Simulated assay, not measured.
Amino acid sequence: MLTPTITHVIFDMDGLLLDSERIYTLLNGKILERYGKIFDWPLQAKLMGKRTIESAQIIVKESGLTGILSPEAFLEEREIMLQMLLPTCTLLPGAERLVKHFHANGISMCVATATCTDHFLLKTQNHSRIFAMMHHVVKGDDPEVKQGKPAPDIFLAALRRFEGHVEASKCLVFEDAPYGVAAAKEAGMSVVMVPDPKLDASCHERADQVISSLLKFSPQNWELPPFED
């Protein structure tokens, strides 16, 4: 393929930089278990990249709990447990190395995440050094993000906040979710996908590159400065 000139990088966060997805999976399962329901992989896959209230609506509907449990009540119950567990998020393999590498080589970066501001602060409180290397962060509750992924709103908002006029075609997005990949492509950007291994290969089709881990990313394949080690 012809490699576009990349000048800026946009990272998703959950399941890409941070291992937060395991916490949501655990808590969603605990709540549904009380209603005799199972939080399985097909349901989890439908939530990837979705904003908080959208995820809750999908969980309630797909689990057959409409009229029994409201999305708002689901979130209220889960929130108590999230406050305790989200600060335990750890960086996923390769995340710190890649962010530090781009920062050291003057590649401007940002984060575009569906998570809300309160949860972002909890998840990142022990990783402030890494997230301080980002030029900016756009979150799911940002006023400019009218629609969640797969709409391109969040990536277009992220693009506008870089310094100067930056063309979408010069942005490389790192995503783990099909909705996120679709949103980035709709925004006119290139995408490296790092999917969950359980995700069906048909969900990889729109990505420009698919890798199993950020550790597998080779910057030189995108004409970016190579790792020194």
Rank of each mutant, 00 (worst) to 15 (best):
residue 53 I to D: 04
residue 50 K to Q: 13
residue 65 L to W: 06
residue 39 F to C: 02
residue 44 Q to R: 14
residue 65 L to Q: 02
residue 71 P to T: 11
residue 59 I to C: 12
residue 55 S to M: 15
residue 40 D to A: 14
residue 64 G to K: 08
residue 37 K to W: 10
residue 43 L to D: 03
residue 39 F to R: 00
residue 65 L to D: 03
residue 53 I to F: 15
residue 53 I to A: 08
residue 48 M to R: 14
residue 45 A to S: 13
residue 63 S to T: 03
residue 48 M to H: 03
residue 50 K to C: 14
residue 64 G to Y: 07
residue 37 K to D: 05
residue 46 K to T: 11
residue 55 S to T: 13
residue 38 I to S: 11
residue 50 K to S: 15
residue 69 L to R: 04
residue 67 G to M: 07
residue 72 E to M: 06
residue 49 G to C: 08
residue 41 W to I: 10
residue 36 G to S: 01
residue 55 S to I: 09
residue 41 W to M: 04
residue 35 Y to K: 07
residue 46 K to Y: 03
residue 62 E to M: 08
residue 50 K to A: 15
residue 53 I to Q: 12
residue 49 G to E: 07
residue 51 R to D: 04
residue 46 K to Q: 15
residue 47 L to W: 01
residue 37 K to P: 11
residue 66 T to R: 08
residue 50 K to M: 14
residue 40 D to I: 07
residue 54 E to I: 12
residue 72 E to I: 10
residue 63 S to F: 01
residue 57 Q to H: 11
residue 71 P to D: 05
residue 58 I to D: 10
residue 66 T to M: 11
residue 50 K to G: 08
residue 49 G to W: 05
residue 63 S to P: 01
residue 52 T to F: 04
residue 63 S to E: 01
residue 68 I to A: 07
residue 52 T to K: 09
residue 37 K to R: 15
residue 55 S to R: 15
residue 46 K to I: 03
residue 47 L to G: 00
residue 65 L to C: 09
residue 49 G to S: 08
residue 53 I to K: 13
residue 39 F to Y: 15
residue 56 A to T: 09
residue 70 S to H: 08
residue 60 V to L: 11
residue 67 G to Q: 04
residue 56 A to W: 04
residue 38 I to K: 13
residue 50 K to L: 15
residue 70 S to W: 05
residue 61 K to R: 13
residue 35 Y to M: 05
residue 45 A to D: 13
residue 38 I to Q: 12
